[in-house]
Amino acid sequence: MNLTQWLEFIGQVHPREIELGLERSRRVAARLGIKKAPSVITVAGTNGKGTIVGVMEQCLCQFGIATGCYTSPHIDSFNERIRVQGKQASDLVICDAFAQIEAVRGDVTLSYFEFATLAALLIFQQQEVEVALLEVGLGGRLDAVNIIDPDVSVIATIGLDHQDWLGHDRESISLEKAGILRAGGWFVCADSNPPAALQNQAALLNCRSLYVGRHFSIQHQDDSSPCWHGQTSDGVDLTFALTPFPGLLADNVAAAAQALVISGLDVDWISRAVALRIDAIPGRQELRRDCDSGCRVLLDVAHNPHAIAALVSRVAELRDSGQVLGKIRTVLAFMGDKDVDSMLDALESTIDFWYITQVE
């Protein structure tokens, strides 16, 4: 089968599109002989996961460290989900991984996401990556990614989304995200207002916790380069300069750097960080220009009120700086389970013309 055929097949194996739980993935992973990579960083959260993973991936690749990166969902092609050294896995490599999974799964009915997760882990093992970056798909506690014990757990900002699965308030949702924490393990929190339930759970597990704004941050002083402040794994204060990263939220970049600093990498951060190039992450407040009209286009995957609020702030920033002039038009498409009314209310004062489409 080619990749298109495989993707159609794996979407039909399990009777439900979403089925949280670790037992199925664990059983098949054991049959495949999947082992943990030397270093694993797992990222959960409502908003900012993709940015944090993307920034870490860019840094590691520029350092020349063999890196596997698993994210979801994809924007254009499935191959985006599985990358090694910043390059998307080929159709052939992914199809081979699917074939190996299918050969051993027996009567275990894997979901689409579980198939994809196992394929990524198998490919990373075969490619002998030094660091595996794993983005949680939904929640954390029962997400397939969580069959692997992370060396560093990162939780991005927590908002209201997927409430039918995760709970109806930030406290409940944060406990699902906290499922990626490990007793005595490293925990990096990129939420500047972390729910009490999350902090209590980290304390209960005796995690070595680092919170944005308390233990690490990025500061901008006048027109100088952004400066990261944080801690090493030995608890020593560390400061280094970074190149500018327009369009990315400072707390997310700060959390990415903090996770890498404590992960045990042999990197001279003070001398090397200033040379890092941190590019825009596709679909995350990605500012581009239309080839035909020359108009500025801002692409963003915001799909909950918290993310929309960040998008509105970014648009205001672009307007205030003179990078965006004239009327602002938005093209919107939301899934039916989203808090559409709250998102439209947040956008109302910013948008001049609306184009409403649908998700296919």
Rank of each mutant, 00 (worst) to 15 (best):
I82L: 01
V145L: 03
G106D: 15
T117H: 10
M343S: 11
G11F: 05
A202Q: 07
L110F: 13
F245Q: 00
T51I: 00
F78G: 02
V261E: 02
L210W: 15
S263P: 06
V145T: 13
L318K: 04
D149N: 12
A119F: 08
W228N: 03
V43G: 12
I41S: 05
T243Y: 04
A241L: 10
K177L: 00
D279C: 10
L118N: 04
I281D: 06
Q88Y: 14
T51R: 02
N206G: 11
I180E: 02
N200W: 11
T239R: 04
H215I: 11
A202N: 12
P38L: 04
V145W: 09
R83Y: 11
V212D: 10
L298M: 01
V212K: 04
Q5P: 00
Y211F: 15
G68Y: 09
A132F: 08
Q88V: 08
S321T: 15
I218L: 01
R214G: 14
R24Y: 02
Y211A: 13
L299S: 08
I101N: 03
A132N: 03
E317S: 08
D223L: 14
F98C: 01
C59E: 06
G106R: 13
R289Y: 15
G68Q: 02
A30W: 05
L3V: 06
L344N: 10
Y355V: 13
F187M: 08
A256E: 03
L121V: 05
A202P: 13
I82R: 01
S293G: 07
K177R: 02
N252H: 04
C295K: 12
V154K: 00
A156E: 02
T42G: 08
S271H: 12
C291R: 13
L3Y: 15
A196W: 15
A250P: 08
A37E: 01
E348L: 12
G322F: 07
F187Q: 03
A178P: 10
A257R: 03
S263A: 11
T239Y: 06
G68L: 05
T67F: 09
L121W: 08
D292M: 12
R289P: 09
G322E: 05
E80M: 05
